[in-house]
Design a binder for these strands. Structure first.
Length: 572
RNA sequence: CGGGGCGUAGCGCAGCCUGGUUUAGCGCACCUGCUUUGGGAGCAGGGGGUCGGAGGUUCAAAUCCUCUCGCCCCGACCA
């Protein structure tokens, strides 16, 4: 492709709308343009890279035995009503009516459609397992789209769905996808971790997220420094520390202290001259089974998802002021475990504490020297707090560390949630009707590309790895006014193309400086610079975008050298 | 949905507070010509704006008031 012919509108300055680096570079590099909030056009350069990601995904999915299909974007409400998600999914599901006033939606995901398709077409255990996938545009009416392709409303996603005869087989399918995902993100040249994740409202028994490590990531993940345990922060377990504190000094008498208007942990600690580690926070939650209290050490936070999973409840939320007063007979800020009538769940973090401070369940009062089981009795001790840097790994003796990541893929073992609601049965070898066991597996294509840029850039622009680069080679003639420069550039261009290499030739009548800047900005991995001075000695220059070194190469050796570099990097 | 910010040429911005000397301006980009050509060139000429939209105040509105739409950021929410 000649630069003068491709629609590649690079920008000299950062557009004011873009905050994160990948968004800025994709706009400046002429890869994408915004049409509306969270809705983007892919320009030729951007689309080329998108297609590269898709290509890798497609190859690995096919290799893993999945079959590609394409399902409709527009989906009838009936299916969603059957699965129960028409009411459950919320405003993210963009709904509309056709001319006959029938309800439709734009597909945010395709469990309903695929399950309906498979239940109609697959009848026998002989046809299972089957894994079907598509690479297709999804629409989710996000509350707050942001960061360009990172969190868009309209976005390209690979979604795959597996159907198996039973749990064991489904877990095999899940494992197979897990491995395929690792290969995909490795081939994309990304630093990532597969982390244990909460299954959320999609349900199912277990789930992993694939996180690209990046400081700008929206998600927090914990990982063990010693073993390979890694989990989303909202899921991360914590090793239970030694129960008995050998340095216990002996219980002191319970003492009520006046703490006028001291509500927060900080205020109470300041007022009573104690550390947050000597205080126990009492939080009142509301569930469908009624209110309950959760206790955690003052310097820790309750993890609502872990609490919710421990309680096995559908809904869990912090109580409002009214409920707090009803439960504790005191305004917010003075809740404590003593004389509470609701069930108490205590985090492991308070197990070894003694003589600690708690709320007085009375306005402007706290207790000093609280102890259990003397003063109150938790119904359960459990792991219900948010993991912190340095906490013990639940799988080994190591310590957990916290990092940021971008979720580029998510795999779920769904179980029979959708096969049950939509009636996806097969006949087993005894002619008995059984539910199919499902899994679903998603990859955000655009987000993967954005994450790659987030992870690989410098002050001059994008640094594409060869597998994702929109072009593999950039030919940069410094002066197209010189006949021999142009001739050699075109010869090398044709030569590389004949070898199946993707080349961009910057034939614009621009100064060399502009071409260098644009070349760095769009991040083509290999640059061949052709200038009049070098040509007098029969030399051109090769430079890789991710290295500072420049190599002078004889014109007749260029094709071979470039071929070697590409073979080495793509083969590896 | 709550809080904050912004809409002036393709991009980045000034002008607004204190209405009129501004025919609405600057840099970059764009078009023509010439000179340049190894890290965002120079000179000369040129095109492009209903100042987001609607209403109002006024002799007079980019500027003041009201409403509205869009965009961005923080938060809440969330397969």
């Amino acid at each position: 492709m000649h630069f003068s012919k491709i629609l590649l509108p690079t920008l000299r300055e950062d557009p004011s709308e873009a905050e994160v680096i990948s968004h800025r570079l994709m706009l400046r590099g002429g890869m994408i343009r915004k049409l509306a909030s969270g809705i983007y056009s892919y320009l030729p350069l951007g689309l080329r890279s998108i297609r590269k990601v898709e290509g890798i995904v497609r190859q690995e999915m096919n290799r893993a035995g999945a079959q590609e299909i394409v399902m409709p974007v527009v989906q009838p409400a009936e299916l969603w009503q059957q699965s129960g998600r028409w009411n459950f999914y919320g405003k993210e599901l963009l709904r509309f009516k056709d001319r006959g006033a029938r309800d439709f939606c734009l597909g945010p995901t395709h469990e309903e459609v695929i399950t309906d398709l498979v239940k109609r077409e697959v009848k026998s255990y002989k046809q299972l397992p089957i894994n079907l996938y598509q690479i297709q545009t999804k629409f989710r009416d996000e509350i707050r789209p942001r960061f360009g392709l990172m969190r868009a409303r309209e976005f390209i996603m690979k979604d795959a769905y597996s159907f198996d005869v039973n749990n064991e087989a489904a877990e095999k399918s899940y494992q197979c996808m897990h491995e395929a995902y690792c290969r995909i993100f490795e081939r994309c040249g990304l630093q990532f971790r597969a982390v244990e994740a909460d299954t959320g409202s999609i349900g199912g028994s277990f789930s992993h997220e694939f996180m690209v490590l990046a400081d700008t990531g929206e998600d927090l993940l914990v990982s063990c420094g010693s073993c390979n345990y890694a989990a989303n922060l909202e899921k991360a377990e914590i090793r239970r520390s030694k129960t008995n504190n050998p340095e216990k000094a002996g219980e002191k008498a319970l003492e009520k202290v006046a703490t006028p208007k001291m509500r927060t942990v900080e205020e109470v600690c300041e007022f009573m001259q104690i550390k947050p580690g000597n205080l126990v926070k009492t939080l009142i939650f509301e569930t469908e089974n009624g209110p309950m209290a959760a206790l955690v050490r003052g310097d820790c936070e309750i993890n609502e998802i872990k609490l919710k999973n421990f309680l096995k409840v559908e809904t869990l939320g912090l109580a409002d002021d009214q409920l707090i007063e009803k439960v504790t007979h005191a305004p917010m800020g003075f809740s404590g475990p003593i004389n509470l009538s609701v069930p108490i769940i205590a985090d492991h973090s308070i197990e070894s504490m003694e003589n600690f401070v708690t709320g007085g369940n009375e306005q402007d009062a706290h207790f000093r020297n609280t102890n259990f089981p003397r003063d109150f009795q938790p119904k359960h001790f459990a792991d219900i707090r948010v993991a912190k840097e340095g906490d013990g790994c639940p799988r080994c003796r190591g310590e957990l560390k916290i990092s940021r990541g971008i979720e580029v893929g998510h795999i779920f073992k769904l179980g029979t949630k959708y096969s049950k609601s939509l009636g996806a049965y097969y006949l087993d070898e005894h002619g008995k009707e059984r539910l199919m066991v499902m899994g679903c597996y998603g990859i955000g294509i655009g987000r993967t590309l954005a994450a790659a840029i987030e992870q690989n850039h410098d002050s001059n622009g994008i640094i594409f790895s060869l597998p994702l680069a929109p072009f593999q080679v950039l030919i940069l003639p410094t002066n197209i006014g010189q006949e021999n420069v142009v001739r050699v550039a075109e010869e090398i261009y044709s030569g590389l193309r004949a070898r199946g290499i993707e080349v961009l030739l910057d034939d614009r009548k621009e100064s060399a400086g502009i071409k260098f800047k644009d070349g760095d900005l769009i991040g083509i991995p290999i640059r061949i610079t052709i200038g009049p001075k070098g040509l007098m000695e029969g030399l051109v220059e090769i430079k890789k975008r991710n290295e500072t070194q420049k190599y002078s190469v004889k014109v007749e050796e260029v094709l071979g050298r470039v071929g070697e570099i590409i073979e080495k990097e793509l083969g590896a």
